[in-house]
Design a binder for these strands. Structure first.
Lengths: 170, 170
DNA sequence: TGCGTCATGTCAAACGTTTGATGGTTGGCC
DNA sequence: GGCCAACCATCAAACGTTTGACATGACGCA
């Protein structure tokens, strides 16, 4: 027990590593979103485009797993990106009603611009920390991720955990 | 320029620190949510309760700033927690239509239980990394947060950045 | 060949959040 | 005292996401 009998909860609760992690991620995400905004792209769009770029021909369901969202959310994003002409859905050669996702030229162009913005942010961060600390940070973060995955393997159905109004597990 | 002229985007994009950060935070959050679920509490509820516990008498708007959400979102959460009898709204002594937020005994109890779950997760992580690496990770994360805040001070109105359908900045 | 299972994609509905706008209150300043 | 800006809280509406359910197609096995 690292806990306390006096107060209900130690005041050190906001000094935890997981809080520092959350704060940092929140700050980074906010900055990305802001910078990406001038390009007319949301962070979610960028994530999707780059995932498709790295693995062309990806299916929507697989994409959903990688982005940690539901297939419907992916469908929604895909529809929008397709409407903008940045993404393309092709029939899968083998499985008939599976749809392959591919970037269009416009999509590649938008991705390139967006990525340069993201890369700039990355660089600004690795600049503040020196290169050594930066790679060390990444190594530690990966360790955390691995530790979590080890304790709790990722849900293959990728079902986000929610709750009912009354607080009983849904 | 750290970039490449060949491919639209380097394949090293998923090796960035900010991606490692995101993955780690996602994993931690998912685990928290899952563990908290058996207690009938969502992570957002826990965050709100602990914030009110640390600073009793907090106003909704201030709380919204700290949690990085809109006042309406806070109001929604507060209404639910108040409905469960874990949170209490009192009139502000000075400002009339400002509402002070306070924990009830039931709220303190729920918070205590929830925090032990969170503390356990924290401990599992700091166990995998040794204590030294753990405090080092926290220090690096704080550095990242500071670096971001330095580049882009937090929006005092705390307005999340969004986008219109057509991609033009909203 | 026929059956059962699994995975993908899509639809309708509910939920939570953000957005935009409004009314009410406080405090500073002329 | 009176005016104006800033802040808090709240309402209605729009948006995005999750949930639950369903139909379709592919594969393994008897």
């Amino acid at each position: 027990m690292t806990l306390h009998d006096e107060g209900p909860v130690g005041a050190d609760a906001l000094d935890r590593v997981t809080w520092a992690l959350r704060r940092a991620e929140l700050a980074v995400t906010a900055l990305k979103e802001q910078r990406l905004r001038s390009l007319g792209m949301a962070a979610a769009h960028y994530s999707l485009l780059i995932a498709v770029h790295v693995d062309p021909g990806l299916a929507g369901a697989e994409l959903a797993r990688r982005l940690n969202v539901t297939p419907q959310a992916v469908a929604s994003l895909v529809a929008r990106l397709e409407g903008r002409g940045q993404l393309e859905r092709r029939p899968h050669p083998r499985h008939r009603h599976v749809q392959e996702l591919h970037l269009t030229d416009a999509g590649r162009d938008a991705l390139r611009k967006a990525d340069s913005v993201i890369a700039e942010i990355e660089q600004q961060i690795t600049e503040k920390l020196d290169t050594k600390s930066s790679s060390q940070l990444k190594a530690l973060l990966d360790q955390v991720t691995d530790a979590i995955q080890q304790v709790q393997p990722a849900d293959p159905l990728n079902r986000p955990v929610t709750l009912r109004k009354d607080g009983t597990p849904g």
